[in-house]
């Protein structure tokens, strides 16, 4: 059963300045007694007291201002950061799409990058080779996959990254903003695939500033502010509280119908 349980989780970053991040203080500091400075390293509490319970089928949007802790929360959910206080329990195979440049080599072909990305997500080379055709078709990149990645536009990179994560049947899909760089037609296609994926077995957490993308992909939301959860609940409620207006009011009738809102 795929699930994520966070229990009063904190993420505290120690900030080592140039001096404290060296042995100098430790070694030299022994001589001459304490000058009375606080030797403790200053800490940034990036996330505080996060209690969150996600389970199979959840499609959660993360909203909040810059620096509110959305990306850090995503990394906590991915297991990249383990909480400094509190606890986290992540059950399921995680596939994050955070920074599109990371783990990709611009000098090698899109095809090779697909393989590497897959290896990082716990697949074997052979498993990825089987999926290549499917990814090529989905991303519509075709022969471009033979080209080095540096020749790709941002949108093409997003397509590639989404193609990989959606092809490997991940159980926990974590998307950071940045995937908005694709055109509407592809977003439509990606949406179907993502929703289908979550329905089969999994959960999705998506951080974004774009209402339309959130509405497309998510059903519930978490509003982050100052490293804490300010509100969590159904998407419409949270976004209405966050933006101060109902996002569905301004939605074109056609979109509303497709999403099943009235």
């Amino acid at each position: 059963m795929v699930s994520i349980e966070l229990e009063r989780a904190y993420v505290d970053f120690p900030i080592f300045d140039a001096k404290s991040r060296s042995l100098k203080k430790r070694v030299l500091g022994k001589v001459g007694g304490n000058i009375g400075t606080d030797t403790k390293v200053p800490v940034i509490e990036a996330l505080q007291d996060i209690t969150l319970s996600l389970s199979e089928g959840d499609r959660v949007g993360l909203v909040g201002h810059n620096g509110a802790g959305k990306s850090t929360l995503l990394r906590l959910l991915a297991g990249i950061y383990e909480p400094t206080r509190g606890s986290s329990r992540i059950v399921g195979r995680v596939a994050p799409v955070f920074d599109l440049g990371i783990g990709m080599d611009p000098e090698i072909s899109g095809y090779e990058n697909i393989i590497i990305r897959g290896l990082f997500l716990g697949m074997s080379r052979r498993q990825m080779e089987k999926r290549i055709d499917d990814i090529a078709e989905f991303t519509e990149l075709g022969d471009y996959l033979q080209m080095p990645l540096r020749t790709y536009s941002t949108g093409m990179r997003v397509r590639l990254a989404l193609g990989v994560v959606t092809s490997i049947d991940p159980e926990i899909l974590l998307l950071d903003e940045g995937i908005g760089a694709v055109d509407a037609a592809f977003m439509n296609k990606a949406r179907d695939r993502l929703v289908d994926l979550v329905r089969r077995s999994g959960l999705l957490v998506f951080a974004s500033h774009q209402d339309d993308l959130l509405l497309e992909l998510c059903t519930s939301a978490v509003w982050m502010e100052g490293g804490r959860i300010k509100q969590q609940g159904p998407l419409r409620e949270v976004i209405t509280a966050y933006k101060g207006r109902d996002p569905f009011e301004t939605m074109p009738a056609e979109t509303a119908e497709r999403l099943g809102v009235h």
């Binding site: 991915a78 990249i80 995680v94 994050p96 920074d99 990371i102 783990g103 990082f120 997500l121």
Partner: peptide, 8 residues
């Protein structure tokens, strides 16, 4: 960069 972006 890899450590911060991909769980491995």
């Amino acid at each position: 960069a890899l450590i911060k972006h991909l769980p491995a």
